[in-house]
Structure formats: structure tokens, C-alpha cells
Design a protein around this nucleic acid. Structure first.
Lengths: 382, 382
DNA sequence: TTGTAAGCGTTATCAA
DNA sequence: TTGATAACGCTTACAA
């Protein structure tokens, strides 16, 4: 070695080629699993790669092919439960195919503006997943200019191919559940359409259609806040009335959590005084014993990622609208509606609509232990 | 145009240079904001970029510089609240600096194995953020082999630089709050150290030290499940005792949610019969009226991202251990401990430790409206 | 202050 | 089945 101009620290395909005694093109072919490589050659390459601990440069490959082998996820980071659930599905589908996962937040106005004005995804992704996004026409145009396939996951219906659920049917199932329990006076707490979520209209539409089909009047409280806060707001408004409906459907489980809070604070019992059903099957719904309509979030992510990858490969129709099924999960927040005078039979009915805890938990009729335990504690060995 | 070998569809730096009437190196300098460019030249370049809608190729830049201008986030996607909160901070810090955000899930065993065996981050990131990760020595070694800076966000203490909170102090603050309320018999529901979370030991250690400092015996229930499930499990075990402690501290808010569920199911009232305090200030803690120790999740993400970027730039010490402050948030799940015989004054004390709802919500003493509302409803105009 | 040209590490075309 | 070699689009000495 007479003189080296620059010390190349990383091992490249050239080093592998030299070590294996073949040309770089052969190494490249072998590594990408092309068929026209002799088995023996393939094996020598494999060994050289191992020995040199060679890792291909994605940047170089990207430059040469024009592909990035990564996909971008556009989402509001504040949809915590839904987003992370979807991401689990997306991640597992993507990893299996060797794609990387780039995240972009459009949760608050600042992040959103930054995203749509600077368009940081350009030249960086082969495809885009828009999770629970509500996009203006302008924003959709920006995405289109990326010039890569885009799939919406459970956002509003646009021209984009979409993977989601049948929100109308889910809402109808909630109404049906309540109706079967004898409820006729059912209200819904729904989010304001102006807010940034795509499921407002369909769930409310499904609710209204189902209630109307039963021949009842529709009763929808529209709130302008989302999550538990919105539920509190909506429930507080309901509570200003002189009488409550016997059952309430909320746009989401988180709203139901908030509604539950208001009801407890006011001394209204669930399900004795009012039945409550949510939508989503949020991870905390079991802990709050909430009856709900479950949606398969993780699965939506996996299906959407697969669809997107097929679109990138050119082997998928670009106008899909896949709807995954929802399902009713009956827990303890809904129960049979009692006509006036029936109230004495409350306890008897209670078990009918509650999930039984899997563990041998103390029964609901057990009397609370004393709060005074200092003396008792000293009797425990430790 | 006599003949073109390949149709270059994308506009490159060469096109910009031609249009601006300068060399590519001048364009490159101008674009990267180097100072040795004449103002007039800079302006001509800017205009050419605009007119051609030029977007630099990250792949080409990465190939030339060896930098990727993206950072990788390693996390369990099932820490939904904490992860997304941290990500908000990370994202905002990163975007401002032009970095991209690559996500990698190590939540379940399969994803974890895949990550640590195939090491998909190699050559793809300039730095790594490990969020709430518990890493074996082997796994840390894999990260080290990436040969880029790594910062831990609120995981276990390792040799890695870390941004987190003072869990011990937070736990001590919880104990202090309960002690000031007169509680002497305080139990903790804590997670099993084997599970994949880094905050087990410090929070429990802080609890035990604080309780011991008060001269009381420590009383810790260790459960092997996390989240609400763990809280249910722990509370159910506590409920098998003949007496309950007067106050309970849980390792996390989600555990507190589960504990609350068990208590309600059993008919034990919070805070009348037992006080409950959590840790985190989970987004749903307000809806469950849970007193808790808040940790600044989003801020941890922002600080960690900044630290990481400084490390990448070489302008940061590589042994940081930054602890952000926690703070007590008093809501309605804790109250003054009543000596035997004091029980009649319950209502009087109640307001002392509850957050007042910001809205003009119905007061807690309002009597529940009738569940029969069909008639009333028909009186409303609609 | 600007231009020339040599990399960076792949892929892919074309011959052999 | 394999090998030379020209892109890919940028950065960065070095020269002017």
C-alpha cells in the first residue's frame, strides 16, 4: 500500500466482492436474492458478508433505485390509544417486508402547518399511511404531490383508498343492544364535525338511522371537545335536564369515560340509573367495565400496510375501501331497562349483562373491610 | 435534442445550477446556508429552486456525507400514553432541526427478537432514542454496535446517557401527601421487576424509603401484570385481607385505574374508605379524579431529542443523567384519614382535597334525575 | 466568491 | 452465470 487518499472506515460491497473473489454485480445480485446466481457463488458471498460484517447502505441503494424502502405515517400523536394500536399492526407488516417506518405528527396546528408547508416526506418515502386523518382538499393535494401511493386508515372518506370499519353498522349495533334491553329513550353524545376526527359523521349517522328505524326521536348532544373532556361536557349538559334518557351512546370510549365521571360526581348510578355504551374498546374499557363496540385497530394497521405495499408494488387496485368488522362487547355499564316500579329487582338482573371477572375476585356483595387496619397489620408476619 | 438515454423525471441540483447559471457546488453551498455565497447568487439559486420545485435527494446527500439526518426511536408500542406523549416532544424538537423520525417496536417478544437479531437501524440513523426500555447487556451491546449516540428516555439506569424523572422523589412525594393527610397505614401496589419497565425499582424504593423514614412498616404488593390488569390483580389480593390499609399508592396511574375497578366492584368507596394515589398523570387521570404524581412526558422527549442531537453534533457530554421534576396533583381520590368515630364529618372534609371542576358542573349533592324521561323529552322542541 | 472534479455505495444495462 | 461500467444526485476538497 503506497498511499491511500482517504480511509474508508465502512466496509462496502466492493470489499465483499474482493473477499468472495467475484464482481460487485454478482454480490449485488446474490444479496438481492436474484435467481441467476450459482449456489456455490451465493454461498461464498454469504460467507464474505458474514466475515466482514457487511451492511448494505440504504442511501446508496436508494440513490441507485429511486426507492426509499420506507413508508411514512401521518397521524395525530394525541390519538394515543388508536395510533399506537394501529402502529403495532403497521410495524409488524412492514418489518416482515423490510420497510422502515417514518412518523410525522399533525396533531397540533403548529405541527400540521409545518408538515403541509414544508412537506418533509418528499423524496423520503415510497408510500404514505394517513391514520385517522381529516384532510382538507388542499392537504390532500399536498399528499398527492408526493407522487406515491397513499392509504387512509379509518379517517374520513375521501378519494383515497381506505381501510377502516363500518362505523354506521357499529353505531347501529350499539342502538340495537340498548333496544334489546328495553331502552326506548336513548341519547348520543357526539363530537363536533369541525374537530379533527373522521368518525364523527358516520357514527352519528348510524345512530340516528338506527334510532329512527325503531320509531323513536333522535336525541344527539354535540360537543366541541374530544376525549374524556368531551364526554364530561356532553354529560354535564344532559344533566341539566330535568330527566335523563335511560341509555346513552357515546361517540368513543374516551367520551364514555368522561360521561361516567360526570355521572358519578352527580350521584347517578351506572347501570342502575342509566345505561352507557361506548365505541372502540379502548384498552381501559375493561377497567371501567364499559360495554362498547370494539374496533380492530391493530388489524386495520396491518391490512392498510399490506394494501399500501401492494400499491407500491403495483399489484393492488387504487380505490379500495376495506371495512373490518366491529363487535359488541357487553360489560357492566348497560343493563335491562326497568319500568317504573321494577326497581326492587335490580340485583337479580345485574349479572345478566356483566362480564364475569376471570379471576376469583371478591364478589360484588362482599362488605367493605374496615379502613382501620393499623392493628391488624401488626399481626401479619413480615 | 438528438437522443436521450433515460428520461430523468426528477429535477436535480444540476438543473437548478443550469437554470441559475452557476455551478452545482455553488447551489449546494447556497442551499446549505454556507456563508461564502454572494447575496445575489444566493437569490438566483433560490429563485431557480422555486421555479423548478426542486427537492434535494436525501439519499444522495446521505451517500455523500455519511449522515442520514434521521434518528431512530426504540420503544414498546404498548406503552401507549407515555410513548405518544414522549413522541410529541421528540417530533417537535426533531422537525425544527430537520431530522426524521424512524420508529421501531420492541413491544412483544417477536418484534423484540426481530429488532435485536436483524438490527434494522444499522446505517439508517444518526442516533437512537430508547424510550422506557429495559435492555439486557446483550441488547445494549447491539445498540452500541450501531456506532451512533444513544439516549435513554426514562428507562432503567444503564451506562447510557438518560433523560427521565426522579422516581424516588416522586414516590416519596406521594407518601408525604398521604402522611400529611394523616395516613399511617399505607400500602403500595408495585410491578414485578422481571417485567419490561424501568421504573419499578426506583418508585418502589422511593416508597419504601419514605415509609420507613416515617417509622412505619412497608407494605408492598408485587404483581406480575402491568397496566390496569396489574392494578386489579394487586387490589384483589389486598381485598382478601380482613382489613384494608387506609391509603394505597400504585406504581402507575393505569394500575390505579385497575385498583379503582376492584374497589368499586367490592363496594369500597374512594376516598371515603380508602385513599388512592397513582403516578404519571395519565391523560385519563382527570376523568377518574385520581390524585397522582405527574411526570412531564412530552418534555422528556423534547429534552432527550435535544441532547441526542447535541451528541450527534459532538457538543454534549455523553454521560448525562437529566432528571425532570415531578409534581403532586391533588384530585378527589385522596382525603384526610379519619380516626374511628370521625366518620360523621365525611362530607365536610370532602371538598378540601378535590379539584373543583372548571366548568359549572352540577354539584356533588344534586339528586339524580329520574331515569324515566320519555315524557319529558317529547316536551323539548326539536 | 466560484468552479472543477473526485468520491459516496449501490443498481442495472449490456456484453461476454 | 458472470463481469465492466455508467448512472443515481449530492458534498467537498482543491484550484482558480
Amino acid at each position: 500500500m503506497v498511499e491511500r487518499r482517504r480511509t474508508r472506515s465502512t466496509v462496502s460491497i466492493v470489499d465483499v466482492a474482493r473477499r468472495a473473489g467475484v464482481s460487485v454485480s454478482t454480490v449485488s445480485r446474490s444479496l438481492r436474492g436474484e435467481t441467476n446466481v450459482a449456489a456455490a457463488t451465493h454461498e461464498r458471498v454469504r460467507r464474505a458478508v458474514d466475515e466482514l460484517a457487511y451492511v448494505p447502505s440504504p442511501a446508496a441503494a436508494g440513490l441507485a433505485t429511486g426507492r426509499t424502502s420506507s413508508i411514512g405515517v401521518l397521524a395525530s400523536f394525541d390519538y394515543r390509544w388508536f395510533l399506537t394500536s394501529v402502529l403495532e399492526g403497521v410495524d409488524s407488516a412492514l418489518r416482515a417486508a423490510g420497510y422502515d417506518l417514518l412518523m410525522y405528527n399533525v396533531g397540533d396546528a403548529e405541527a400540521r402547518d409545518h408538515f403541509f408547508s414544508s412537506s418533509p416526506m418528499r423524496r423520503r418515502v415510497d408510500g404514505v399511511l394517513a391514520v385517522a386523518a381529516v384532510l382538507t382538499g388542499e392537504e390532500q393535494a399536498v399528499l398527492r404531490k408526493l407522487d406515491v401511493p397513499v392509504v387512509a386508515v379509518n379517517g374520513i372518506r375521501t378519494l383515497l383508498p381506505r381501510v377502516g370499519i363500518d362505523d354506521e353498522a357499529g353505531a347501529a349495533a350499539a342502538v340495537k343492544h340498548l333496544a334489546l334491553l328495553g331502552h326506548t329513550d336513548i341519547a348520543m353524545i357526539s363530537g363536533n364535525t369541525d374537530a379533527l376526527v373522521g368518525t364523527v359523521t358516520p357514527r352519528r349517522a348510524g345512530f340516528e338511522a338506527a334510532v329512527a328505524a325503531l320509531g323513536h326521536d333522535t336525541d344527539v348532544i354535540v360537543v366541541d371537545r374530544w376525549g374524556a373532556e368531551g364526554g364530561i361536557q356532553g354529560m354535564d349538559r344532559l344533566l341539566t335536564r330535568s330527566t335523563l334518557p335511560s341509555a346513552i351512546f357515546t361517540e368513543s370510549d374516551e367520551m364514555a369515560f368522561g360521561a361516567l365521571r360526570s355521572l358519578r360526581r352527580t350521584g347517578v348510578r351506572v347501570p342502575e340509573d342509566v345505561s352507557l355504551i361506548g365505541f372502540d374498546d379502548h384498552e381501559l374499557a375493561p377497567a371501567l367495565d364499559l360495554t362498547t363496540i370494539a374496533q380492530p385497530a391493530r388489524e386495520q394497521g396491518a391490512v392498510a400496510a399490506d394494501l399500501l405495499m401492494n400499491m407500491i408494488a403495483g399489484t393492488a387496485d387504487t380505490s379500495a375501501d376495506i371495512k373490518l368488522p366491529t363487535r359488541l362487547i357487553v360489560r357492566g355499564s348497560t343493563r335491562r331497562h326497568l319500568a317504573a316500579g321494577d326497581t326492587e329487582s335490580d340485583e337479580v338482573r345485574h349479572g345478566d349483562f356483566s362480564e364475569q371477572p376471570a379471576s376469583s375476585a371478591p364478589s360484588a356483595t362482599r362488605s367493605p373491610p374496615s379502613a382501620q387496619s393499623t392493628l391488624a397489620r401488626s399481626a401479619r408476619g413480615h
